[in-house]
Simulated scan of single mutants.
Amino acid sequence: MLKDRLIARALEEGFAKCRVTRPDAVPELPARLAGFVAQGRHGQMGWMAERMAWRGDPAALWPEARSVIMLAEPYTPAHDPMAVLDQPDHGAISVYAQNRDYHDVLKKRLKRLGRWLLEQAPDEQIKVFVDTAPVMEKPLAAAAGLGWQGKHTNLLSRDLGSWFFLGAIFTTLEIEPDSPENGSCGSCRACLDICPTGAFPAPNQLDARRCISYLTIEHHGPVDPELRALMGNRIYGCDDCLAVCPWNKFAVQAREVKYAARPELIAPPLAELARLDDAGFRAMFSGSPVKRIGRDRFVRNVLYAIGNSGEAALIPAAQALLDDPDEAVSDAARWAVARLK
C-alpha cells in the first residue's frame, strides 16, 4: 500500500511522524482566521490579512490538491533553554534559531520525499511548504493526527512533546487520511501563566501584538515601553510557553545535527552583540534564521535586554548607540541608558 511505504520512507528520511489529511479538513479555519485579523491580533503582519483567502482555505491555495502530507521533525534542545534567563547580561535566542535555518534544512528533506513520491506516481504533482506560503500548518497537522493545538496555540504531541518543526507536502494523489488526535491539556495552564507579556487573552487564543516572538522578529520600529520592560533578555523569539509544557517529558532527541545549538548562540554576551555592525551581524548569523531580521532590529532587541539587565556595567554599550542612524536603535539606546541610570 502506497501510504505504508510513504510513512516508511518518511521515517527513513529522518522525520519522526508522517500523517495525511485533506486540504478541506478544517472547515472552521476561515472563520477562526478572520476573527483573529478582525481583532487586530496579527499586528504588523499585513500578509496575514492580504492572503487570508488562501491561508484560511488550503483547498483554495491549490484547488487540484487532494491530500496534504504533514510531517514532524524534532529539534529538541540538548540544554535547558530557560537557563539563560537567569543571566541578565546575556541574550536569549530561541532554540530553533541557534544553528541552521530550519526552512532550508527541512525543505530539502521534503523535496527528497516528494521526488520519491512522484517516482511512485509519475502522473501526479506535489508542492512542498515550510512556512513559505500562506499555509496554516498547525491546524492541518492537528487534523492529520500529528498532535493537537495546546492552550498556547502551538502543536503538541503525546510522543514528541512540543519541540518539532512542521512540513507539508500537497499532492494531487488521493491518499487515505488519518484521524485527528484527541489530545488534551486538561486543566494545565503552565504555558498561559508563564508568558511574560500576557499574550494569551484566553486559552487557545493568542494576541501576537504582545508575543515576544512577534515583537522581536516581526515588529518594525520601537516597541511599546510597557512591553519592552517585560521582554527580559529575550532578543530573538521566546521559548517559555514551549519549554514549560509537561508533555516535553516525551520529547525525542533531534536527529538532524544542523539543529544542534552553536555554543556561541546559547547565551551570547549582550555587550558583544551591541557592538555588531551590519557586516559583523551577517557574519555571526550566516545561515541562521536570525539573519532575516537584519542588524538594526536585532540590536534594538539587544538594547531592550541591556535596559532590563540591571547591569550598570552595560551602560557604555548602550551609550555607544545613542546616535545610531537607525531611529529604533537610538531610541532603544536612550531607553536602556535611562533605565540603567
Rank of each mutant, 00 (worst) to 15 (best):
Gly237Gln: 11
Gln120Val: 10
Cys191Ala: 11
Gly91Ser: 13
Glu73Asn: 04
Thr197Met: 04
Leu29Asp: 06
Ala267Val: 13
Glu218Arg: 00
Gln98Ala: 05
Gly167Gln: 12
Asp80Ala: 13
Arg234Lys: 13
Leu110Asp: 09
Leu113Tyr: 12
Val26Glu: 00
Arg100Cys: 00
Gly161Arg: 00
Ser187Ala: 14
Glu64Ser: 13
Gln319Val: 04
Val299His: 06
Ala260Cys: 04
Gly35Leu: 01
Glu327Asp: 13
Met1Leu: 10
Ala25Met: 07
Cys241Val: 09
Ser157Lys: 10
Glu181Pro: 06
Phe170Asp: 01
Asp24Ala: 13
Val20Asp: 01
Phe164Gln: 11
Val26Leu: 01
Ala97Val: 09
Ala34Val: 01
Tyr236Val: 02
Gln120Arg: 12
Arg66Phe: 11
Ala25Asp: 01
Ala10Trp: 05
Gly114Val: 02
Val130Asp: 07
Trp54Val: 07
His152Phe: 06
Ile175Ser: 02
Pro268Asp: 06
Asp239Leu: 04
Ala34Glu: 14
Thr197Glu: 00
Leu166Asp: 10
Leu156Tyr: 13
Gly280Gln: 09
Tyr304Phe: 06
Ala65Arg: 06
Gly40Phe: 06
Ala338His: 07
Lys107Arg: 14
Gly310Met: 08
Ala8Gln: 15
His220Thr: 06
Leu340Phe: 06
Ala65His: 08
Leu11Glu: 12
Arg22Ser: 09
Ser162Met: 12
Ala60Arg: 15
Pro134Ala: 05
Ala338Val: 09
Asn308Glu: 00
Pro246Asp: 06
Tyr304His: 07
Val95Glu: 03
Phe250Gln: 15
Thr197Trp: 04
Ala267Gly: 12
Ala31Ser: 12
Arg55Trp: 15
Arg339Thr: 01
Glu327His: 02
Asp104Ile: 08
Ala317Tyr: 04
Val26Asp: 00
Val337Ala: 05
His152Gln: 13
Gly43Trp: 14
Ala53Gln: 14
Tyr102Thr: 02
Val223Trp: 03
Ala229Met: 11
Glu272Tyr: 11
Lys341Thr: 14
Gly147Met: 10
Phe164Arg: 14
Ala229Asp: 12
Tyr214Pro: 13
Leu146Phe: 14
Lys291His: 07
Leu118Asn: 04
Pro58Glu: 15
Pro58Arg: 03
Arg100Ala: 05
Phe129Gln: 10
Ala143Arg: 10
Gly232Phe: 01
Ile293Phe: 03
Glu174Arg: 15
Ile69Leu: 12
Arg22Leu: 07
His219Leu: 13
Ala312Leu: 10
Ala267Trp: 05
Arg228Leu: 05
Asp326Pro: 06
Asp178Tyr: 11
Ala72Asp: 07
Asp178His: 14
Gly280Thr: 08
Asp178Ala: 10
Ala38Tyr: 08
Lys111Gln: 12
Asn182His: 14
Glu174Ala: 15
Ala261Asn: 08
Ala10Thr: 13
Arg66Leu: 07
Pro122Thr: 07
Cys238Leu: 08
Ala25Ser: 08
Arg66Glu: 15
Met231Val: 09
Ser179Thr: 13
Asp24Arg: 04
Ala338Phe: 03
Arg295Asn: 08
Asp131Arg: 12
Ala283Tyr: 10
His220Ser: 10
Arg5Ile: 01
Ala243Arg: 09
Arg292Ala: 08
Leu173Met: 15
Asp57Pro: 08
Pro203Asp: 00
Val302His: 05
Asp123Glu: 12
Phe200Glu: 11
